[in-house]
């Protein structure tokens, strides 16, 4: 038997034609085009596989059976669009996610940041904020907090509002604490928050140097010059063309010798600006702009 001869079920009513995947791909492209033209949100260069999953889950949740049917409703209903937007934004994160990254940042990047009188860090795609507060805690413990401003941005306003409050469920804190300790944390996580009933709220002194702002990596440009840009597990949802554009944006937005930190399984190799960077920590994907 050859690969071409896999058992085919043509003519059997209960089996979908293999090209139904292609029809759905077409439907999703039409939806994204419609969303862009109607609302200005541009998801056309997102990685299709995971976008399709989230769209399909959203359709099921909204009781719509096809993506074309979803399109019809979204174009006429801005509130549905807002829910779709929120569904497309992946907000699964935790404090000190990948503790090894924070350890490397503490050991290899903090000493470099200390050489500046004041520093700006851009946390792009900050989601619900856990990783931003993690960075604020790290900076505080490294004596950098006073002179650093963190610009935390996300395209989803709803998520950003939630991040701004600094309020999180208490039950998640045990896992966060474990990560914090593994990341080389010098104190104890509860030093940084107050617990009330089943929630915690992060201390005001952590939040005072964080600027929260809506920014869309797909459509918005550079807005400052930074000494470090942290963008972890955000670009995995983009296709290669969009990744290349965002890499250019980051390159333009970094000061010379500025730091670029990506997610553990992302890589700068293959991006058009790869040659402009040197490596600080290859395993943790921390790079430094050379030119």
């Amino acid at each position: 038997m050859t690969a071409r001869d896999f058992p085919m079920r043509d003519g059997c009513g209960s089996i979908e034609k293999p090209d139904s995947a292609e029809v759905e791909d077409l439907e999703i492209r039409l939806l994204l085009e419609g969303v862009f033209q109607r609302y200005g949100y541009d998801f056309r260069d997102y990685a299709l596989s995971s976008l399709k999953r989230r769209t399909r889950n959203f359709s099921a949740q909204e009781g719509v059976s096809t993506i074309s049917a979803l399109q019809e409703k979204i174009l006429r209903d801005p509130e549905l669009m807002e829910r779709y937007l929120h569904a497309l934004s992946v907000n699964v994160t935790s404090m000190f996610r990948d503790p090894g990254f924070y350890r490397a940042f503490r050991e290899k990047v903090a000493p470099f940041l200390r050489t500046y009188p004041s520093t700006r860090i851009w946390h792009a795609g900050c989601s619900s904020g856990e990783e931003v507060y993690s960075m604020a805690i790290l900076l505080m413990e490294e004596g950098l907090h006073e002179k650093t401003r963190i610009y935390a941005t996300d395209f989803d306003e709803k998520t950003l509002q939630q991040a701004k409050t600094g309020v999180y469920p208490l039950q998640a804190m045990a896992d966060h604490e474990k990560n914090y300790i593994e990341s080389g944390g010098k104190r104890s996580l509860p030093d940084y928050y107050v617990a009330r009933y089943d929630h915690v709220m992060f201390a005001e002194r952590l939040r005072e140097n964080i600027v929260w702002a809506q920014h869309n990596l797909v459509t918005d440009g550079s807005f400052n010059e930074f000494h470090a840009i942290v963008c972890r597990n955000v670009m995995i949802y983009f296709n290669s063309a969009l990744q290349a554009r965002v890499h250019k944006l980051f390159h333009e937005s970094l000061a010379r010798f500025g730091i670029l930190a990506l997610g553990e399984k992302e890589t700068i190799h293959g991006s058009p600006v790869a040659a402009c960077y040197g490596t600080v920590d290859e395993y943790e994907k921390i790079y430094k702009r050379k030119q």
Binding site: L48, S49, R53, R54, V90, V92, T93
Partner: peptide, 11 residues
């Protein structure tokens, strides 16, 4: 998987 490369997700 996409057409000719892998993709990751933290969903």
């Amino acid at each position: 998987v996409e057409k000719n490369h892998f993709a990751l997700s933290t969903e």
